[in-house]
Design a binder for these strands. Structure first.
Lengths: 153, 153
DNA sequence: GATGAAACTCTGCCGCC
DNA sequence: GGCGGCAGAGTTTCATC
């Protein structure tokens, strides 16, 4: 899927800034613009590149609170009903099913504490949410590195 | 910061696809390309738009495992040393300080179980990591919505 | 698969409103 | 702030290797 170093260089550059033009990338890595365009097209078609997005600062658009909610849903039917209803929760920006006591971990953005309380109430219909409020972001959306670390994996 | 509906439409479109051209956006929302370019520039300058990135599927580049690690570090000096050393952990793609017993929540990508074990060992120098392996992604990098839900916030 | 050239489209800049 | 026009870049397509 990622065939060679050119592919990796393209991925690196797009992870840094997805608005780089084909021409800019071509100058950076030493391929022609059309070759770069073809490779990006291929990586998109193969879903190596899932999407290109702009990251918005939640605080600047009215969401002053961020939190992780771990969510224990013991009843499988309720779990399925929650997944069907997840669109009703625009606060949820990330949601993964995980091993352990809690079956879901979610990242949510909120206007304020009242909003958080409201969300917790609405979630409680399906299971037992447990909230950890984010105090500060240390790292967000870090780039994937070519997986050959110096470290011993 | 986000002045009007035009700004919101631009943000919506860029959250969907950050590679849309100024011209494409201008046709979509009914402004001139130069007005769109100026607005995007302003939103970037004000850090409303933090960055534009391409999302890579970790599985397609050799990371078959994803996990959340909550990390309890009781000793504040060790906490600070960990933050200084975070670059030594390329597996960490997200890291937030949170309220509760665990002081950090991290999202990590890993090659395999051996890699996970290795990471847990390296983290244990600083504190007590607790791992939840991701079974499936239900939602990732969902767009921020204009924060006026129908719901009662 | 990559290249290069041609036709087309977009961007960046400026004066004007 | 937004628009329109223009010169220079960038993109797309296709024939060629």
């Amino acid at each position: 899927m990622v065939k060679d170093d050119f592919d990796w260089k393209i991925i690196d550059l797009l992870q840094k800034n997805s608005r780089f033009s084909f021409a800019q990338i071509s100058r950076e890595i030493g391929l022609s613009p059309s070759a770069v365009a073809e490779r990006i097209q291929r990586l998109e078609d193969e879903n190596v590149i899932k999407k290109h997005i702009s990251i918005i600062d939640p605080k600047k658009v009215g969401y002053s609170l961020k939190a992780y909610i771990t969510f224990s849903i013991k009843d499988f039917q309720k779990y399925e009903r929650f997944l069907e209803s997840i669109e009703e929760f625009p606060e949820i920006i990330d949601c993964s099913r995980v091993t352990g006591n809690d079956c879901l971990i979610m990242k949510v953005v909120l206007v304020d504490n009242t909003h958080l309380e409201n969300l917790v109430n609405r979630l409680s219909v399906y299971g037992s949410p447990s909230t950890s409020v984010v105090l500060s972001d240390i790292l967000t959306n870090a780039s994937l590195k070519f997986p050959r670390f110096d470290i011993n994996i």
